[in-house]
C-alpha cells in the first residue's frame, strides 16, 4: 500500500508510459494511479490534488519514522545502550535542552549555547550513544516546571557531574548550599570551598556549570550586589533571582 503511494511524486514527470503499453499489463493492477491515464497528457500538468497527496505521503512517512524512533529509544534504554537521552522543554528563561545518563541529569543547556554544539560535546566527552527520548528527562522536566511555578525550592533528581572535575566540581557541588532566595558573592563561595584566593576560579566554575538552574550558580553574584555573568544570559539570571526573591518575600 505504501509502496504504491510512493509512485505519484515522480509519476507525473514520466508522462511517456504509453511507450510500451504491452509490458505494463501485469503490474498495472498494483501500481501507479497515473497509469490509468496513459493514453494522454491530461494527468501530467500537476493538479493541486496530486501535490497534496504527495505531501501527505511524506507526512505519513515522517510520522511513522517518529514513532519508530520513540520505540527505538525505549528498546535502547531496555537494552542498556542509551548512554545519553535528551529532550527539549520550554521555560520562562527560554528553551532548555535537558540530557541525562543512567546515573542522572548530566546537562541543562540554554538555547544561546547552541543545542547542536552541546550534544556534540556530550558525545565527545561521555558517549556518542545519544538519542532523543523524553522519558528519562520526565523527572527533571517536572521539577523544573514546579520550580518555575514557585512550588519547588530544591531539586531532588539525581545529578551526574561527569562533565566536571577538580576544583570546578568542588565549587559546583557547594553551590547547592546557597539557599533558595539567597545569594552569595564569588568571594564568599571561594571561602566556602576553603580556597579564599580562588575568586576567579569560582567565576569559571560557575560559568562552566553543566547543570544551570538545577545547580544554582545563578545565586552567585558580585560583591557589590550586581548579578555578574551567567551562562544563560543576564536576563535569565535576573528572572531566576526575581522569581526566588518574590517567592521568599511572599509578594509575587
Amino acid at each position: 500500500m505504501t509502496a504504491d503511494q510512493y509512485t505519484p511524486p515522480d509519476g507525473h514527470l514520466g508522462g511517456h508510459t504509453d511507450d510500451q503499453p504491452d509490458h505494463t499489463t501485469h503490474t498495472d493492477t498494483h501500481t501507479d494511479p497515473d497509469d490509468e491515464s496513459t493514453g494522454g497528457d491530461e494527468g501530467t500538468d500537476g493538479t493541486p490534488g496530486e501535490i497534496q497527496y504527495t505531501d501527505s505521503v511524506e507526512e505519513n512517512l515522517t510520522r511513522h519514522l517518529m514513532a519508530l524512533k520513540m520505540d527505538l529509544a525505549t528498546r535502547a534504554e531496555r537494552g542498556g545502550v542509551l548512554d545519553i537521552a535528551f529532550h527539549e522543554v520550554d521555560s520562562p528563561v527560554g528553551r532548555l535542552l535537558l540530557a541525562a545518563t543512567a546515573k542522572g541529569v548530566v546537562r541543562v543547556a540554554f538555547e544561546r549555547e547552541g543545542f547542536d554544539d552541546v550534544l556534540e560535546t556530550l558525545a565527545e566527552k561521555i558517549s556518542p550513544r545519544v538519542l532523543s527520548s523524553p522519558r528519562r528527562l520526565e523527572p527533571v522536566a517536572r521539577e523544573l516546571d514546579q520550580y518555575f511555578d514557585g512550588q519547588l525550592r530544591e531539586f531532588t533528581v539525581p545529578k551526574d557531574y561527569s562533565l566536571s572535575e577538580g576544583f570546578r566540581l568542588a565549587v559546583q557541588q557547594h553551590l547547592t548550599d546557597i539557599g533558595y532566595g539567597h545569594t552569595a558573592s564569588y568571594k564568599e563561595v571561594a571561602d566556602l570551598v576553603g580556597n579564599p584566593k580562588a575568586v576567579r576560579a569560582v567565576g569559571t566554575a560557575c560559568a562552566t556549570n553543566p547543570l544551570p538552574v538545577v545547580v544554582p550558580c545563578h545565586r552567585v553574584v558580585r560583591s557589590d550586589g550586581t548579578p555578574g555573568g551567567y551562562v544563560g544570559g543576564l536576563d535569565a539570571k535576573q528572572t531566576l533571582l526575581t522569581l526566588e526573591n518574590e517567592m521568599v518575600s511572599g509578594c509575587p
Binding site: 519514522l65 524512533k69 527505538l72 535528551f86 565527545e124 556518542p128 538519542l131
Partner: peptide, 20 residues
C-alpha cells in the same frame, strides 16, 4: 564521536526503504 541521533535523523528514511 557524532551523536547517534544524527544518524537516525539523516538515514532513518533510507533504512526504512531498504527494509520495506
Amino acid at each position: 564521536q557524532e551523536p547517534f541521533e544524527r544518524a537516525v535523523e539523516q538515514h532513518g528514511a533510507t533504512v526504512l526503504r531498504v527494509c520495506r
